[in-house]
Computed example of a mutant assay.
Amino acid sequence: MELPVFYAKGLDPAATAYTMDEPTSKYCVQVLRKERGQQVLLANGQGQKFTATITDDNRKKCTVQILQCETLPAPAPILRIAIAFTKNTSRMEWFLEKATEIGIQGIIPLLTHRTEKEKFKTERLESILVAAMLQSQQYYLPGLAAPVAFETLVKQPAATQRFIAHCLPEQKMHLQQAMQPGQDTLLLIGPEGDFTPAEIEQALGEGFQPVSLGNTRLRTETAGVVACVLMNSINAF
């Protein structure tokens, strides 16, 4: 039977003991009915996998003794998506969940001319990433950057390969044809209504390559998930 995995933010690989926070303790002890002497796994989101034994099954402060720490290989290459969040919060939360499960390493909220100005609830979004990481049995938490302006991001040499997916009717290669495996990659996904022509021109001027994600018009969050799948599949072998 597989051991349950719990998130232990900031847990040091050299630690010998750990006390879970109250929500995690409650889930471990009350929901999963774990007791003193039983083993669990901990993940700090930085690649460490801790095997531990429960020493105090307190439902508010469950304490464990760490028996072993294993550092798992970091995902390579680094695949990141910069995406313009939409006004529909639930759709973007869905995207974050699926992107994490698929295995993307970095997500950048992109502020474009047509981006809906919504409050960025960092704590809520990070909790979605954590839950998706644990559910998919991964040990690296995707990086969630602070929102960044389009004009700023395109000027940064953030990856070996840089692409912009847009809907203007110009000749573009499909991402599967344009992207080379084994290289750090950044892909830009636009808001509802797409990037403006001026933004596309600026990105191309900074060395971004225009790409297509297919023949159909996709919603922003759908385009993000399609891109995650394509980027991972290109690097699967």
Rank of each mutant, 00 (worst) to 15 (best):
residue 176 Q to P: 01
residue 166 H to I: 02
residue 89 T to L: 14
residue 232 N to H: 11
residue 218 L to Y: 10
residue 174 H to I: 04
residue 19 T to M: 00
residue 200 I to L: 03
residue 41 L to R: 09
residue 82 A to S: 07
residue 112 T to H: 08
residue 137 Q to S: 15
residue 172 K to L: 10
residue 84 A to L: 05
residue 45 G to D: 13
residue 124 R to V: 13
residue 132 A to M: 14
residue 108 I to H: 04
residue 50 F to Q: 00
residue 160 T to V: 13
residue 29 V to Q: 06
residue 67 L to G: 01
residue 185 T to W: 03
residue 219 R to M: 02
residue 169 P to Y: 11
residue 145 A to D: 10
residue 39 Q to D: 09
residue 82 A to L: 04
residue 140 Y to E: 12
residue 90 S to D: 15
residue 186 L to Q: 04
residue 56 D to F: 02
residue 11 L to S: 13
residue 29 V to F: 04
residue 144 L to E: 09
residue 90 S to I: 07
residue 187 L to V: 15
residue 24 T to G: 01
residue 11 L to V: 06
residue 1 M to D: 14
residue 152 T to A: 14
residue 154 V to E: 10
residue 2 E to W: 12
residue 186 L to H: 07
residue 231 M to N: 01
residue 94 W to T: 12
residue 23 P to S: 09
residue 129 L to P: 08
residue 110 L to P: 05
residue 101 E to C: 05
residue 221 E to T: 07
residue 84 A to M: 03
residue 206 E to K: 13
residue 75 P to T: 07
residue 180 Q to R: 12
residue 95 F to C: 06
residue 209 Q to T: 14
residue 148 V to Y: 01
residue 180 Q to Y: 04
residue 42 L to E: 06
residue 29 V to R: 03
residue 89 T to S: 10
residue 80 R to K: 13
residue 64 V to F: 03
residue 83 I to K: 10
residue 151 E to R: 14
residue 120 F to C: 11
residue 222 T to G: 08
residue 29 V to K: 01
residue 61 K to E: 03
residue 74 A to S: 12
residue 148 V to R: 10
residue 151 E to W: 10
residue 65 Q to N: 07
residue 135 Q to S: 07
residue 80 R to T: 09
residue 25 S to F: 08
residue 151 E to P: 01
residue 213 L to D: 02
residue 102 I to W: 09
residue 206 E to R: 08
residue 56 D to Q: 09
residue 32 L to Q: 06
residue 52 A to W: 03
residue 106 G to A: 15
residue 209 Q to Y: 02
